[in-house]
């Protein structure tokens, strides 16, 4: 029983699994997220197949704004992975810079999404309008909450959480990698949401 490093394996890989327990944990969580969004995706297909008519996304949604948001999320995924790479190069200043940009891009995504929602509400298009808007708001709303969650976690790691870098750089890098895995997953979900809701 040699304390933290002997039991918890959060700074170094566990000899049995070959990965840290933190990484094992985040992947279990992401597997559950695959089921959460997978279930909703299949609900979307079921609703669409069962509907007498289905509006074309591009006719009623704002494709240029959604394309902009796609670019914003893709860019934020790069800055997120760059923040991790900066830590791997022991460049803490660069880490903070890339993490700050990632957070700002996440906020930009939510602002654009907010404009889209506001425009819909102005025209009294709400989840109760029809089945399309019901699943549109459910999927994009849940995704938006995930973006918000990622922003909160990343902000924690930019400010108070970054104190760990001096105490245990390996553990901190593991945390940033886990936060990154989550952020990339949120990007990955949007990569499917964008064509399915807006283009088809």
């Amino acid at each position: 029983m040699s304390g933290d490093s002997g039991i918890r394996y959060i700074s170094h890989p566990h000899p049995v699994t070959g990965v840290t327990n933190s990484k094992l944990g985040i992947w279990c969580f992401l597997a559950s997220e695959v089921m959460l969004f997978g279930g909703l995706f299949s609900a979307y297909i079921l609703l669409r197949m069962g509907a007498a008519s289905w509006p074309e996304g591009s006719a009623i949604l704002n494709v240029p704004l959604a394309t902009l948001n796609t670019m914003i999320l893709i860019t934020s995924s790069v800055t997120m992975v760059m923040s991790w790479a900066s830590l791997a190069l022991k460049d803490f200043k660069k880490y903070r810079w890339f993490m700050a940009v990632t957070i700002l891009l996440g906020l930009a995504f939510l602002v654009v999404k907010g404009f889209e929602y506001a425009h819909k509400f102005e025209h009294h298009h709400t989840p109760s309008t029809n089945t399309f808007y019901a699943i549109y708001f459910t999927l994009t709303g849940l995704h938006g909450l995930h973006v918000l969650g990622g922003i909160l976690v990343n902000t924690y790691f930019l400010f108070p959480g970054s104190a760990l870098w001096k105490k245990d750089p390996d553990q901190f890098m593991g945390r940033i990698e886990a936060a990154g895995l989550y952020w990339h997953f949120v990007d990955l979900v949007w990569i499917f949401l964008f064509p399915v809701l807006y283009l088809l």
């Binding site: 990965v19 992947w27 990007d187």
Partner: peptide, 23 residues
């Protein structure tokens, strides 16, 4: 995104086993 940003192209086997049932 999965292969390069999430490093799945070069990951330990156990991670694939976790993802397999979900997929």
């Amino acid at each position: 995104v999965a292969a390069f940003f999430m490093h799945l192209a070069n990951e330990k086997k156990i991670i694939y086993w976790i993802l397999l049932p979900a997929v």
